[in-house]
Design a protein around this nucleic acid. Structure first.
Lengths: 342, 342
DNA sequence: CCTTTTTGATAAAACGTTTTATCATGTTTG
DNA sequence: CAAACATGATAAAACGTTTTATCAAAAAGG
């Protein structure tokens, strides 16, 4: 059992009140002697205030909730690292909830965090679907603490957001392929209900449309933001299209696709160009270094954490939407289209 | 403000006691009517018990602390995922503490977790140094809840441990290089005070000794388990040794080393063979797929979580040491030594 | 009809803090 | 010397639960 205020009070023959006052450095009248005595005994007994009790009375837990789809995904773990770093330097701890891209877990997660009295929630909205957003929005509005969404901005939710300009990211990626002369460009998307997916899809469509290229639905393949999803989608692309370029909605799926292509002895970028999204650490170190859209995960996390801290410290401060602009990192996986092949 | 038991009591004209009893499904005498009424109103008001209060009285928070050096490191994020999955299915949440390999943060972290009343602590001991272990061991023993160390077993700590047989892992890695005819084998270690480092060093030494090879200190280069540390170490290796093979103590540093070698136009494995440790997801997808020692991070995490749950459920259950056996995954980064080069 | 038992519900203490209001002392002051 | 004021400390309520012991009323038993 831990040492409590009462223990110190008993040992020093003082009241709990006095001990608490002194240890919290509250302005109060206490003699030099008793002050020293208390400080010394607390030190000796290695006293740490029980944060459950503190939280209960202060209605502040110095804890923030972090809801994330998949912590083993490099993008999210870097995001988490940025958040943790910022929170840590403000003496806040984070409760990590992994949703596995499951909307049910997300909903339960929010309730869990509420019941744990977190001071704020940082929510990667990846598994929110715009269709039943109104359902979530009631839930999220019922959270009395600041909520910061990362990855996307939902006006309905009426909360601050830190996001990447996904549409632009996708746009420049596809534009790059088009500039290289590609016209048959397949894409590997994320789950259709994810807004991140929808935004990137918009960018893809825009670039294609602008270039006067057709938009056959059968060039869009639904992945899951995981490696094996990318591998499977690439398999389908090979079977049912004559694409010369692939735009994968994230790097992890692009890697899966690379594996499939390699298995079929298809050369990247000679036969097929491929561009990813995220620029995770390893994308530059692949067999064929991956051309990709940069997304500064750590910085996004930091910024989200900062905004959360702001809103905790100054309740009612205005909500902000912070948008990071993407840029393309051109490596070796894309190349000008070979003279018409057939 | 959240809805409390008192709110429900007021609304139903019942006492807090009755409401609590019913909602917790405690065996007690309550009429069918009031039971239904309570259940219904709780549902309507969307009541969730305040976990701070519950934790305070039950002395159980359904929270476990996870202390990790670097969540953005693929090994640790997979470890975290395994732990979270197992904990989640038992309705426990995890508080994540990132130490940045800083022993000071680790110590503070343990105290933080204590004061937050976690039910158990899972501790990756990477930043513990065996030298001042006695210092930590007092601290850790002062934690009244189960502590599970991952990554290493310290008999002094007297707690359960889930570990990889690091010595054997290093041994088979180096043995592999020796079998390939290499004699000048450099290694890139982690921080010298880390026990993981020391164990792997032992394996390296053992393999070299068994083969009758010399052990020049200048063939050991101190890294930091991060990419840039590996890159720097490789730089030094090139300058000051004539090594034909490198054993890196983890994959991430091996990747850093690969970059350095590439920069110097040194071929892997033709000029230098390299073997890593961990087998993180991407190591098979590198420019030169990496030969490495497999370490099942997710499973190690799961097992650690299971043991923690056991010890929470049955205090005083015997401590266990669970050891995973490593195996070598041979890919393309290692090769028989070329005919004597000079 | 009085005692015992059952039924349905509650009061109160506890968990470990914080914080406000109050209370004895002793010390000035007019 | 009484009145006013400092000084050093404390009691008690509050935060939102859980849990034990208790209580009143109704039903059953003799």
């Amino acid at each position: 059992m831990s040492v409590t205020l009462k223990d110190i009070a008993r040992k020093t023959n003082l009241s709990v009140t006095t001990v608490s006052l002194v240890l919290n450095k509250k302005p109060c009248r206490v003699s030099e002697n008793t002050r020293d005595l208390i400080l010394k005994t607390a030190e000796e007994m290695n006293y740490y205030p029980n944060q459950l009790a503190v939280g209960l009375v202060k209605q502040q837990t110095n804890t923030v909730g972090l809801i994330i789809p998949d912590i083993s995904n490099h993008f999210y773990s870097n995001l988490a690292l940025g958040i943790d770093a910022e929170m840590n330097s403000h003496n806040k701890n984070i409760i990590l909830l992994n949703t596995d891209f499951d909307a049910g877990k997300l909903v339960r997660g929010i309730n869990v965090l509420k019941s744990r009295g977190v001071d704020a929630i940082i929510l990667t909205a990846a598994s929110l679907s715009p269709k039943n957003l109104s359902l979530y929005s009631d839930l999220i509005r019922s959270v009395s603490v600041p909520v910061i969404t990362v990855d996307h901005y939902y006006p309905e939710l009426n909360c601050s957001a830190v996001q990447l300009n996904n549409r632009k990211g996708a746009y420049i990626a596809v534009k790059h392929l088009i500039n290289y002369g590609h016209t048959d460009i397949a894409c590997i998307t994320g789950p259709k209900h994810s807004t991140v997916t929808l935004e990137r899809l918009e960018g893809y469509r825009l670039a294609m449309k602008e270039a006067g290229l057709p938009l056959p639905e059968k060039y869009m393949f639904c992945g899951n933001y995981r490696q094996e999803g990318g591998a499977k989608a690439a398999e389908e692309i090979l079977q049912s299209t004559k694409a010369t370029a692939i735009f994968s909605f994230n790097d992890v799926m692009a890697m899966g696709a690379c594996q499939t292509l390699k298995k079929h002895s298809i050369s990247i970028p000679d036969d097929i160009s491929i561009v990813g999204f995220d620029n995770i650490d390893f994308s530059g170190m692949l067999a064929v270094p991956l051309t990709t859209v940069n997304q500064p995960a750590y910085e996004i996390g930091q910024e989200a954490a900062r905004q959360a801290l702001q809103e905790i410290a100054h309740p009612g401060v205005e909500k902000r939407t912070i948008t990071f602009e993407p840029h393309l990192i051109i490596r070796d996986s894309t190349k000008a289209r070979a003279a018409v092949k057939d």
